[in-house]
Write a protein that binds this DNA or RNA. Structure first.
Length: 571
RNA sequence: GCGCCCAUAGCUCAGUGGAUAGAGCAUUGGUCUUCGGAACCAACGGUCGGGGGUUCGAAUCCCUCUGGGCGCACCA
């Protein structure tokens, strides 16, 4: 379907252009002409503000608007154009054109409002990216939903999208995981294992490892009893990933690529990055930072010898950062920079990184690294999601990772539903804190937006069930029989294109969630007032209305799928 | 101390520099001879945290203050 704002902007631009060619307007740049959906019916369906052109034209904005109206090219989309003070062009959509959009909805169906914004360019969204040491924590869930919805919107906008998961399966944490599983394995075989204070600090205590260990004991018996952590680590990692993927699958998230941080060690990429930075003069060796930080503390220098530092302060960072510890082991920052270089090298046109607010500083350092390597940092975009608080009975639920009934994304899904999780975590701007109200999410009432939206789809499906039962089928519907209520809903449908365009270009996927609620809000009154199968409805009118509700169902299914939610036939 | 985010209706929150700031919930009052009432209609409700500035025009941009949140490791 056509993007209404784009088309109307074009009409106004052409009319002003024609005015300039005819000498009715002086020559000046026609930039920034943007149509907006109108807020008031008496001001038309779309408005274009021409006030910015008053100065270059040296005319009153109202005069410019009048000239624009006068020279407006004809369009079957537009019924009427008016100039309004102080300088607006108000457009009224043609009702015939609006009715014809019902056909367009059927034609596009599940691809409704697929745009050409991306022009087939390659985009990559990196999200979740948790290490496979534990089930997905609730803290990751918002980024997961936001990232996947962003990917869906970019696809709708015409990008070729890849979803990527970055993880680390090397290092101390994974070794700890292997050791922890071994302990549980020995326990599963009936041995008692004494753990020192020191062991407990690094021990993964989650119940999931007991489950893995029981399976392992059944599978291998005591064959692994003398193995060190390596086999256990590999086993735990594989099980962990199965678990994480299963959790993500519950909310319909599927990554195309799992990128292993360790590969950057194996192929030497991290050392190439270090060398490149060194060549450019951004590396030095020292026992402490060459830049005194604000607190002037240098306690990290104590007896540790020389580390390898990156002059990130040259790029606006508040202090320099260590890339290689005095032990010779890289910090996570070095592979992180190498990873982002790798992403750029893979030729994506657009990169999006979904990060929790607590990782923002780290991202700044990586960005500094990319700039230091003289690579195009502008291709890397970040969606920072603020923290989530879980509320029950108006109280914040503590999300302890040690104990408690509530810590994982699975818990959240269990206690509410996959659809509720997707909607609730999406329906907030990423940069505001989010309160996830458990009581609301499970409530089966009109207070719950999840049900309100899905119910619209259910009601459409209900009409068709009833129609089928009565033997009514759509044949040659006459769209002229649609009334004002239906047209009002169709006007709202038109906004879907703008929502996709805007959310894909500003990386703000939450917009689709609010739009969905508005769409449902526009739907329910129509459903209540526009009967299809009532005895007093003329059969021809019933045909047109049935056809209309079929289109409405397509729109709801499309919107729900863009949010990764199900479109139920019954509830 | 420094960096980032937030402050809009009683609550939870939308709002792309454009006309009279919106929605859901809550509250109050209505609508059922029901294709699914998990619905609809109406009313009530605002110094957009305070103060400056930029602009033809500011909730939106800039500065500042206040109040919250998150970071500021030779952890990941």
């Amino acid at each position: 379907m056509i993007l209404a704002t784009r088309e109307i902007s074009r009409l106004v631009r052409e009319s002003l252009h024609a005015a300039q060619a005819a000498g009715k307007l002086p020559e000046f740049e026609l930039e920034g002409i943007e149509a907006r959906p109108s807020k008031r019916a008496e001001q038309g369906d779309y408005n274009v503000a021409l006030m910015p052109f008053a100065r270059p034209a040296r005319m009153s904005p109202l005069q410019i608007a009048q000239i624009a109206v006068e020279l407006m090219p004809p369009s079957d989309m537009v019924a009427k154009v008016e100039a309004a003070a102080p300088g607006y062009v108000n457009m009224f959509l043609s009702e015939d054109w609006l009715r014809a959009q019902v056909e367009a909805i059927y034609a596009e169906n599940d691809d409704l409002y697929r745009l050409d914004l991306g022009q087939g360019k390659r985009a990559q969204v990196e999200f979740v990216s948790a290490n496979p040491t534990a089930p997905l924590h609730i803290g990751r869930s918002r980024g997961a939903i936001v990232g996947d919805t962003m990917a869906r919107l970019l696809e709708a906008a015409g990008y070729d999208v890849e979803r990527e998961y970055y993880f680390n399966n090397a290092g101390a944490q994974m070794r700890n995981l292997g050791n922890s599983l071994k302990v549980r394995y020995l326990e599963a075989l009936g041995q008692t294992v004494e753990l020192s204070e020191e062991d407990l600090k690094t021990f993964y205590q989650g119940e999931y490892l007991r489950d893995f260990a029981r399976e392992l004991a059944l599978e291998k018996g005591d064959a692994w009893i003398n193995e060190d952590y390596h086999l256990f680590k590999a086993y735990a990692e594989q099980k962990m990933f199965e678990m994480i993927k299963a959790t993500l699958d519950r909310v319909d998230i599927h990554h195309d690529n799992f990128f292993n941080e360790n590969s950057l060690y194996e192929n030497g990429a991290i050392w190439e990055v270090l060398e490149a930075l060194d060549k450019r003069g951004y590396i030095y060796k020292a026992s402490k930072s060459a830049v005194t930080d604000d607190q002037g503390d240098d306690e990290n220098a104590d007896g540790k010898g020389e580390a390898t530092w990156f002059r990130s302060s040259d790029f606006g960072d508040s202090k320099d950062r260590v890339l290689v510890k005095s032990s010779g082991e890289p910090t996570y920052t070095l592979p992180d920079i190498a990873y982002h270089k790798n992403k750029l090298d893979r030729g994506f046109d657009l990169l999006i990184n979904v990060l929790g607010a607590d990782h923002y500083t780290q991202y700044q350092v990586v960005r500094a690294g990319i700039r230091a390597l003289d690579l195009d940092a502008s291709k890397i975009n970040v969606i920072i999601v603020q923290l989530v608080a879980i509320l029950r009975g108006g109280e914040v639920v503590r999300m302890s990772s040690r104990k408690g009934d509530f810590e994982t994304l699975d818990d959240l899904i269990d206690q509410t539903s996959a659809d509720a999780v997707r909607y609730m975590l999406l329906a907030r701007s990423s940069d505001t804190h989010l309160n996830f109200d458990l009581d609301l999410a499970i409530k089966k009432s009109n207070e719950n937006p999840v049900y309100y939206i899905q119910y619209a789809h259910v009601r459409c499906a209900g009409i068709f069930r009833e129609a089928a039962a009565r033997g009514v089928r759509v044949q040659n519907p006459d769209l002229r029989l649609l009334g004002d209520a239906e047209l009002k809903f169709l006007r709202k449908v038109l906004e879907l294109g703008e929502v996709i365009e805007l959310s894909a270009s500003t990386f703000e996927p939450h917009r689709i969630a609010f739009y969905a609620l508005e769409l449902a809000n526009a739907f329910h009154p129509v459903f209540d007032n526009v009967r299809v199968l009532a005895s007093d409805v003329d059969p021809a009118v019933a045909q047109a209305r049935l056809y209309f509700f079929g289109a409405a169902q397509i729109v709801f299914r499309r919107v729900l799928r863009l949010m990764g939610m199900t479109a139920p036939e019954v509830m």
